[in-house]
Simulated scan of single mutants.
Amino acid sequence: MTRRSFGTKEDLALGLAEAVAGHLNDGIEARGQAVLAVSGGSTPARFFQVLGRNRTVDWSRVIVTLVDERWVSETSSRSNAGLVNEKLLQGPAAVARFVPLWSGGDEPTDAAIARTNIAINALPTPFDAVILGMGNDGHTASFFPGGDSLTAALTGEGPAIAIRAPGAGEPRVTLVLRRLLDTSGLYLHIEGEEKLATLEVASGDGPIEDMPIRAVLRQTQTPMNIFWSP
């Protein structure tokens, strides 16, 4: 596990975009295409904009999907897919293919999750880069403390499952840990002193269920790169 600190959010966005572009270019060179899985929320917007303007990447050979999603349509202001379309899939990156996790309907029923899993299972593996975020409660992806399917998210095959939790708001769909770790590049993107303090607590002793980011921090399968700025 490595940690890089940047002086500003702008510097972080540039550094992370450069690192991710490298993974995408490596994937394209090795197998003719690359897969990027990203997180939503407010933190990655600046990074998305910088990455989407990168002209060294052949975006026509890139597939973008999500780490997790609220079970809402892409027109909702709460949609991670909407954020990706607005901030990342613009300019040079507009030609990338996007694979959403929301597959329609008001609830993530078994049939809806099955449709999502067909789409995710069709993607090449390993992914080329996975970008995680983290909440102040220690959740990552939609691995929320108290989640009704948290154990399945941390130990199951997935590749995607539905999850509901007190802190999650809407029902969610999330890729399981096993699928997130199957990547050439694994990144945790966090900003602010509060997130850094949360990370310090999560890096210490304690149950994974209390702060599920610990499952990622403690795994030894895939090296974790932490990118942080104040």
Rank of each mutant, 00 (worst) to 15 (best):
P166K: 02
E157A: 11
S149R: 15
I213P: 00
G206W: 09
S149T: 15
R164H: 13
G147N: 06
S184Q: 15
A152S: 10
L186N: 05
P166D: 07
D210S: 11
P126K: 06
D137H: 01
R179I: 12
S203N: 15
P171R: 07
P145V: 05
G158I: 10
A168L: 03
M134Y: 00
S184G: 15
D148P: 07
L132R: 07
E200M: 15
L199Q: 00
P207F: 07
H139F: 00
G138E: 01
D137Q: 04
G146Y: 06
T183Q: 12
V173G: 10
P145Q: 10
P171K: 07
R179D: 13
P159E: 04
P212H: 09
T125E: 11
D148W: 10
R179A: 15
T151C: 05
L132I: 09
V173Y: 09
I213N: 00
A152M: 04
T174I: 06
L180F: 13
T183G: 11
E157V: 11
P207D: 13
A153R: 01
Y187S: 01
D148N: 15
A141C: 14
A202S: 06
P207W: 05
I161V: 12
D205Q: 13
P124C: 05
T155R: 12
G206L: 11
A168S: 14
L181W: 03
A165F: 01
E193D: 15
I131T: 04
G185K: 04
D205P: 10
E170P: 05
T183R: 09
L177H: 02
D210Q: 10
I190Y: 06
S149M: 10
D137N: 13
A165K: 03
K195H: 08
A153N: 02
F127C: 05
N136Q: 11
L177Y: 02
S142Y: 09
L188M: 10
P207S: 14
T140C: 08
I163H: 04
A202E: 00
Y187K: 01
P126Y: 04
T125K: 14
M211S: 03
E191H: 07
L150V: 08
V130S: 12
I163D: 09
L175V: 12
I131R: 01
A153F: 03
P126I: 07
G146K: 06
R179E: 13
H139R: 01
D148K: 12
N136C: 11
E157D: 15
A141F: 13
G192A: 08
T151R: 14
L188T: 05
A197K: 14
G133P: 10
E157W: 04
L154Y: 06
E191V: 11
G204D: 14
R164F: 04
